[in-house]
């Protein structure tokens, strides 16, 4: 039985009068790929943002390895080995691929040897980035930018990676590549929390899936079970 690494307990987030998360509880086991699915505005991105400290949590608790991290500043959470690959990738478009990666290793700025080693590792994992290392981030295709965003996340040597819609706006062939990378990264021992609108993809990739609707978790189970669930098939898979 593996250990619980992330836990949300009755978390509520509001944007003014809009209640984006209304008492969400979930638990992620170390080394798992957990996916959050749901339609637009269900609160998936808000959940990741609450986890990485980008939005304030009104009530409830977030735990990392049993220690509370609720409402910590984003940089503190990043230093605790959680890498958030944000929605829309947020590449530094005026910097080169390599500079983008080096910023990803900000938390280990002093350890030059480590940074070189991580660069090397990422270039090996994503050969296309090695080819483009002197190119501006903004000149890459959507799929390449997504790889860069993931690689930049890996540069901080995280234990947990939060991936927000890695398939959004990317050519289908690239999406397959990217999800292959996600599985590889997971196989190297990293826990992955994945937000994905494409339920098919999420169910194929993740071991455990939470279904969000208007800020609440309405269903959760292992993907093997959910894939045969009637509602899921109708609403999210269009079968």
């Amino acid at each position: 039985m593996s250990k619980e690494i992330v836990k949300l307990d009755d978390v509520c987030v509001c944007y003014g009068a809009i209640r984006a998360l209304q008492g969400v509880s979930l638990s992620v086991e170390e080394g798992a790929i957990v996916a959050l699915i749901g339609s637009n505005g269900a609160g998936k991105t808000t959940l990741l943002n609450a986890l990485s400290g980008l939005v304030p949590v009104q009530s409830g608790h977030i735990f990392l390895r049993g220690e509370e991290i609720t409402n910590e500043k984003p940089h503190i959470i990043a230093q605790r080995r959680i890498a958030h690959v944000p929605e829309g990738r947020k590449i530094f478009s005026e910097l080169t691929v390599e500079e983008n990666l080096r910023i990803g290793a900000y938390t280990q700025y002093k350890n030059k040897a480590k940074i070189e080693q991580l660069l090397h590792m990422n270039f090996e994992l994503f050969p296309i980035l090695a080819e483009r290392r002197k190119q501006m981030g903004g000149s890459l295709s959507g799929g390449e930018q997504q790889m860069l965003a993931i690689a930049r996340g890996l540069m901080s040597e995280p234990d947990i990676i939060l991936l927000d819609e890695p398939s959004l706006g990317i050519a289908p062939i690239m999406v397959e590549h990217i999800f292959e990378f996600i599985r590889q990264i997971n196989a190297s021992g990293k826990t992955i929390i994945l937000v994905e609108q494409n339920a098919n993809l999420a169910l194929e990739t993740a071991s455990y899936v939470y279904v969000l609707e208007t800020g609440r978790i309405v269903n959760e189970n292992t993907s093997d079970v959910l894939i045969h669930d009637d509602t899921i098939q109708k609403v999210y898979l269009g079968l």
Binding site: K73, H75, A78, Y106, T107, Y109
Partner: peptide, 25 residues
Amino acid sequence: TRIGLAIRTVSMDEKTAGLMGINVN
């Protein structure tokens, strides 16, 4: 310098800078 890198990163994108482990404030 490291602080210089933080300044440049925050100048580009404050939110993402925080995610990179930079103390934005």
